[in-house]
Design a protein around this nucleic acid. Structure first.
Lengths: 334, 334
DNA sequence: CGAACCGATTTGATCGTTCATATTCCAATA
DNA sequence: TATTGGAATATGAACGATCAAATCGGTTCG
């Protein structure tokens, strides 16, 4: 080792300077640290990885090809995750899984060749085989989004859809809209149902509550526009619509335009996720705190790595209202 | 080594079975291969990496946080790259660079610790320091998009914007639109200027060519709508507009709606990149062959890896017209 | 019949680090 | 003075693969 030679100490001492500074005499520490700095020494990851039997990397399954990206936060999430990972001394390795293939195989492979130590899961489906398999094999992982199937899985971080929509509804009332309708996904998706329940609870508190002011549509702009249109007709003149996603909100936005209803000043509109779609169309939305989410997730996984067992308890983070023109009642004239 | 024991051969023979099968006697080969299969043996990447001094991984710099993703193909590209990488025995490692930080430092770091062997560049800017540095240091890399600054950099794969727009223009004429205008970015961006030139060349061939039928706008839906509006007025009744990006096209789309002009049947519209935006709004667009691009890029980088020097010659791939409602003149009544 | 050759396989060293276990040195204690 | 203890540092082995060179059998040939 070059540094060892230059500093006149053994390789182990250099190793200790980096990994166990407290074991090294202050004077030696300073000397070696200076040489490390001077020579720009960086420990070789392959060698570390081989000896320590860990990769310092996490796998991240990217959306299958052809998957919808519009109004999807996962791409933005990957960026935040990458940024966070650096602080946690992890690297992120992407991988894809053929849809007609055993989804577990690639996870198994990456672990077997010691390419990654664990995984960051997203888009956990109903009856998803991954959490169970990972848990059974003692593989560290965290999921972005609750693993609704099984409450005993606790390695997750999620956003509070219920409270989030509630906050959105209260925001709309505070802006002076008198009724708030809801456009969600068809019943049956845990996330969607949670958000709908948030609307029911918050809007239900108002005097003018009408449980009929809701509609549902799949996650598609065109379909959402069609589903929203009749609802928007009845919200004309001071009502507002809150949606389970920005994509749905965008659908509603185009419907409003087609109906000749002024977005914001006549009918309020709020989306969910605060994707680029919301920003581009000036639609108020509920921002998922992606940076905090990524950070929490890596904390949880690092905990697992250190203690050998999953960290207890999932974490629910609060989204925040990002106000834009679509929920601004009136630009004040002066 | 377990397999060696089970097959009754030395570890080196097992290694040869995997890496140099021709050196092994057919009978031994079969025997060892069977044991490898049976025991599910996968060579440890850390050990390989240490010995061979290569990481079998490429770095991919993700968009800075806060970067526009709407109408951006890079997220989709990363997916294709990940898929392709697997075929080329590479892994993709994402990393981010703080905007106020030396952009080279992270590249240097990843190489120094032997986390990656090379890089896949995207979004090469004018006067980008990266290609020069990488070249000077003999680091394998490919760029998605020409490195316009310096024609001596040949490690790139790009899409032919000139021809692509030309194909779009011809498509529009074939559909029966009589004039084709252009909405592009402000002059000065090589990509944008290339696409504009493609319009000039193709539209210039038509009898009714009017060089005044163009406008420009930054890459933003709202701004694009404002810039497109006057142009669209003069294209009413059988004209068409081709745009330098889907984002611009989406702006034009909203402008058409606001002007009460029927998209497609009255005025044609074509975007570029074929992102989700185009699909969601039924806008005809020029599809970048991302899978082919990723494949070509990895071929180039693998070439560098094998031969120690950059592969000669950049590659230009052709985008193809994906027709949707926005450029369909009339749904045939029956 | 021995030398030379050849393909198939094995052996020893090595990549760069960390772990486990020495060793060294010096001060405090019996 | 000899003993013990502990902090600081050094040494040998190991992680799991590949490389380079050695060995082993068996042919071929002079």
């Amino acid at each position: 080792m070059d540094v060892a030679l230059a500093a006149g100490v053994s390789r182990q001492t250099v190793s200790n300077v980096i990994n166990n500074p407290h074991r090294v005499a202050p004077q030696t520490l300073a000397l070696v640290a200076r040489e490390i700095e001077r020579l720009g020494f960086k420990p070789n990851r392959a060698a570390q990885s081989l000896r320590r039997r860990k990769a310092d990397a996490l796998g991240f399954q990217v959306n299958a090809v052809g998957e919808r990206r519009l109004g999807n936060i996962l791409d933005a999430f990957l960026v935040e995750l990458t940024v966070s990972a650096r602080r946690h001394d992890f690297h992120i390795v992407t991988f894809a899984v053929d849809s007609h293939e055993d989804p577990i195989a690639e996870y198994e492979h990456l672990l077997a060749v010691q390419m990654v130590d664990g995984f960051v899961l997203t888009s956990t489906r109903h009856a998803d085989p991954r959490p169970g398999w990972l848990l059974a094999n003692g593989v560290p992982f965290v999921s972005f989004g609750r693993v609704w199937d099984d409450p005993s899985f606790t390695s997750w971080v999620d956003v509070d859809g219920f409270s989030g929509v509630g906050a959105g509804v209260r925001h709309l009332f505070a802006q002076g809209y008198d009724r708030v309708g809801f456009l969600g996904w068809p019943e049956g998706s845990p996330v969607g149902d949670d958000r709908r329940a948030g609307w029911l609870a918050a809007a239900g508190e108002s005097a003018a509550f009408d449980a009929g002011l809701q509609a549902s549509s799949p996650q598609d702009v065109h379909a959402a526009a069609a589903a929203a249109a009749p609802l928007l007709e009845s919200l004309r003149g001071g009502g507002a619509l809150i949606c389970a996603s920005d994509t749905l909100a965008l659908g509603a936005w185009t419907a409003l335009r087609d109906l000749g209803i002024a977005v914001g000043s006549d009918v309020g509109l709020v989306g969910f996720d605060d994707t680029d779609v919301a920003e581009s169309f000036a639609i108020t939305s509920l921002r998922q705190p992606l940076a905090d989410i990524a950070d929490s997730m890596l904390d949880l996984i690092a905990h697992h790595g250190r203690h050998g067992s999953p960290a207890p308890g999932g974490q629910v983070l609060q989204p925040i209202v990002v106000q834009r023109a679509s929920s601004t009642r009136k630009s004040r004239k002066r």
